[in-house]
Amino acid sequence: MSNITQQSIQSPITPTWCPGCGNFGILGAIKQAFVQMAMPEENLVVVYGVGCSGNMADFNRVYGFHSLHGRAISNAMGIKMANHKLKVIVVAGEGDTYGEGLNHLISAARGNHDITVLVHNNQTYSLTTGQSSPTTFKGTATKSTPDGLIEEPMNPLTMALAAHAGYVARAYAGNMAQLINLVKAALNHEGFALVDVLQPCPTFNKVNTYQWFQQKVYDLDKEGYQPYDQRLAWEKAMETEKIPVGLFYHDPSLLAYHKHLSQLEKQSLLEQRAEKISLEKPFQAFV
C-alpha cells in the first residue's frame, strides 16, 4: 500500500491538449488534491467521459475507467456499489454530463451516491471540433448553429440543487488553489458532489476566454457566504452578471446511498464474494 505522489500518478504519456487549454489547470489541481489527501493509490478510481476532458485518462496512472460519451456516472455508480470502500471520481465534459448523460447525473444526485463529479465546463463540444453545448450562451454561432444558438443555456448548479445534491460547487480552472480545496472537500463529502469547473477552451470558445472569466468571476468565500441554505444557494446560482465561484451548497447530514443498504453494513459487496453458496432458502418458495 503506497500513497499517491506526484511521481506515482505520472503516466508515461504527455498531455495532448492545446497550449493554453484550461484542462492543464484542472489536471494539476486534481493531482494536487489526491496527493494532499494521502490516498493509497489502489483505493482511487477515476472514471472518465469522452471528450477533450476525458482524454485525461491517459495522463494519470490510477485505476481508471475510460467510459463511453455520457455514461461515466453510471459506471462510477456501479463501481461504488460493488466496492464502497473506494474513492470514486468522474472526470467529464459538460456535453457528456449535462447533455448526453444528464439522466444519470440526476439519478446519482437523487440517490446521493457517494461519487464526485468534476465537470470540465468549456461551453463547447471541443473534441468534436466546436459545436454548441448545453451551457453555450444563447445566440452563439458555432459549427452546428451557424445562425446562433436558439436554446437557453442550462444551469447545472440549480439543476443539481433541484436533484437534492448535497455538495454543489463551481470552480474556475484559472484558480488552482480554490479548485484543489473544492475537489478535496468534494471527495471528503460522503455523498454526491458536483464540482462544475469553468474551463477556457482557447481553440474553440472565443467568447468565454481567460480574460472574460477574469473580469466576471468572484469568490463566494471572500464574501463570507455560508453554503448551508438551499434557497440562498439557488439565488447565488442564478447570478449571471458576475459569476460566483466556490462552494454553493453543502449538507453533510444526508445519508449516502450505500449507507442505506443493510447488505453493506459490515463489508463491501466485493469482500462478501462467496466460494460456497447455499440455495436452500430461495428454493423453499417453489416446492
Binding site: 475507467f65 467510459s67 463511453l68 459506471n75 455508480m77 456499489m81 439519478s107
Partner: peptide, 21 residues
Amino acid sequence: VEDEIAAINQAIGASYAGVRS
C-alpha cells in the same frame, strides 16, 4: 435504474470492480 443505458453501464462498472454482474 433510470434507463437501460444506466442498467448496462452500472453492471459494467460493478463488474469492473470485481463482482459478478
